[in-house]
Amino acid sequence: MDNFVFDNYTKIIFGKKTEETVGEEIKKYGSKILLHYGGGSIKKSGLYDKIIFSLNSAGVEYIELGGVQPNPRLSLVKKGVDICKRENVEAILAVGGGSVIDSAKAIGLGALYDGDPWDFHARKAIPERMLPVGTVLTIPAAGSESSDGSVITNEDGWIKRGLHSGCMYPTFSIINPELMYTLPKTQIANGCSDIFAHLAERYFTNTKGVEFTDRMIEAAMKTVINNAKAMVDGSKDYDTWAQVVWAGTIAHNNLLNTGRVGDWGSHNIEHELSAHYDIAHGAGLAIVFPAWMKYVLKHDVSRFVQFATRVFNVENDVFNPTKTAMNGIEAYERFLQSLGLPKTLSEVNIGDEKFELMAKQAVEIGGGKQGNFVELKENDILEILRMAK
């Protein structure tokens, strides 16, 4: 087990009707805020009206910036930065899922920086401070509501890059599972895929002596497996949703990677897919992650056997551990397909015409490589994409 420092200062306000407290919460950080959100879903659901009522009741002045897309765009980030600087905004309230929250974080960084906001994601500048960001979560998936990360897509070259810094944790996050009941099935499925992938990225590690965090990750994985199908099928049972929503937050708040080094190769490969083809992140991960698993399986068959037997209850063939490991990967694929997620790139009409470009771009940010469990070079990523075809 490795040395670690765990310091997550995000205040979590979880439960029914908690969104009604947002005005008083954000007022602690500023009386003039940027209200950041996506499309029209928060208005159709009535959440927008609740937020506005709470802000007005608390005497908080707000400037609105909607329009966040999945795979959030740098151009909107720049617009938000300009607003914050021009209007002397003191804090940002992100109402939405991971894309909205990631965009808000990027705006919060850029508002206190004199250069191009893209400098941070391009590794040309180191984040040191961010405007306070509060969130009201509407989609269980990215975990950005309690993480130190942000992922932004630059339309100039369609480059998608993730960024992590200790200054990027939201100050508070309001999480009411009831707000998510009306999500489309595809968004629920994509969200559950993303949560599971966050867990798997941490699970596949070369660090020894990590039984405690192994067991926590396995518990979170099984919770997602046990409840995701009911959510996709339309369940409005509060406890069913609450289990997965809370697992999604814990999956990405850095608690589960304490004392260990995760992989993150699959995420960086998928970022190229969603940057170039605008595929939903969870759908892309459902395609890439099993292909990655098959490609790196021989590196540590015993860990894949543990994954298969503990998470998916696969019978352990002690005479053929590789077979047991493959059965675990196939069980993972069946779980994803049970949610309606794609298995191959061809199912989502992605051909091989950009494979070489995506493989090249995937390793640029990592100095010619990606991943920690197995170090992937450009040719490795190209082969994984071909296996996913």
Rank of each mutant, 00 (worst) to 15 (best):
residue 22 V to Y: 02
residue 58 A to K: 05
residue 165 S to K: 05
residue 103 S to G: 05
residue 158 W to S: 14
residue 334 R to A: 08
residue 220 A to Y: 01
residue 33 I to Q: 08
residue 360 K to E: 15
residue 138 T to W: 02
residue 34 L to K: 03
residue 276 H to W: 12
residue 154 N to T: 12
residue 210 V to Q: 04
residue 217 I to D: 00
residue 217 I to Q: 01
residue 106 A to R: 04
residue 61 E to C: 09
residue 166 G to P: 11
residue 142 A to R: 07
residue 238 Y to V: 02
residue 264 W to R: 13
residue 278 D to Y: 03
residue 255 L to C: 12
residue 291 A to W: 14
residue 53 F to Q: 12
residue 145 E to V: 01
residue 283 A to R: 14
residue 98 G to L: 02
residue 371 G to K: 07
residue 302 S to A: 14
residue 353 E to Y: 09
residue 65 L to R: 00
residue 376 L to H: 05
residue 138 T to F: 00
residue 332 Y to F: 15
residue 389 K to M: 15
residue 349 N to Y: 11
residue 185 K to G: 09
residue 250 I to W: 09
residue 288 V to H: 06
residue 106 A to T: 04
residue 199 L to M: 11
residue 45 S to K: 11
residue 355 F to G: 05
residue 231 M to Y: 03
residue 230 A to W: 00
residue 245 V to W: 05
residue 218 E to N: 04
residue 2 D to C: 09
residue 194 D to S: 08
residue 106 A to K: 03
residue 17 K to E: 15
residue 88 N to A: 00
residue 222 K to Q: 10
residue 22 V to D: 02
residue 6 F to V: 08
residue 370 Q to D: 06
residue 92 I to S: 02
residue 165 S to L: 04
residue 304 F to Y: 15
residue 28 K to D: 09
residue 383 E to P: 07
residue 147 S to R: 02
residue 147 S to A: 07
residue 54 S to T: 01
residue 129 R to E: 10
residue 332 Y to V: 08
residue 145 E to A: 00
residue 128 E to D: 12
residue 305 V to C: 13
residue 153 T to A: 01
residue 72 P to A: 02
residue 120 F to M: 09
residue 212 F to P: 00
residue 156 D to T: 13
residue 43 K to H: 13
residue 28 K to E: 15
residue 168 M to P: 06
residue 243 Q to T: 03
residue 204 F to G: 01
residue 120 F to G: 06
residue 350 I to Y: 05
residue 178 E to P: 08
residue 32 K to V: 04
residue 210 V to P: 00
residue 373 F to C: 11
residue 198 H to I: 03
residue 324 T to S: 13
residue 378 E to L: 10
residue 330 E to C: 05
residue 125 A to P: 12
residue 52 I to N: 05
residue 169 Y to H: 12
residue 14 F to P: 09
residue 143 G to R: 03
residue 376 L to Y: 04
residue 212 F to G: 00
residue 67 G to S: 01
residue 35 L to W: 02
residue 123 R to S: 15
residue 245 V to T: 14
residue 107 I to V: 14
residue 355 F to W: 09
residue 40 G to H: 11
residue 280 A to I: 02
residue 154 N to V: 10
residue 143 G to T: 05
residue 50 K to V: 03
residue 234 G to V: 07
residue 362 A to I: 06
residue 160 K to G: 10
residue 211 E to F: 00
residue 219 A to M: 07
residue 44 K to Q: 12
residue 194 D to C: 07
residue 8 N to F: 08
residue 208 K to A: 06
residue 322 T to L: 11
residue 113 Y to M: 06
residue 362 A to N: 11
residue 347 E to P: 05
residue 348 V to F: 04
residue 251 A to L: 10
residue 264 W to T: 14
residue 126 I to Y: 10
residue 128 E to L: 08
residue 349 N to A: 14
residue 270 E to M: 10
residue 205 T to Q: 00
residue 254 N to G: 04
residue 311 V to P: 09
residue 363 V to Y: 04
residue 352 D to C: 07
residue 92 I to E: 00
residue 385 L to I: 13
residue 111 A to S: 07
residue 22 V to G: 03
residue 67 G to L: 03
residue 382 L to F: 14
residue 130 M to L: 06
residue 114 D to Q: 14
residue 371 G to P: 07
residue 31 S to H: 11
residue 202 R to Q: 15
residue 59 G to D: 10
residue 132 P to K: 11
residue 359 A to T: 09
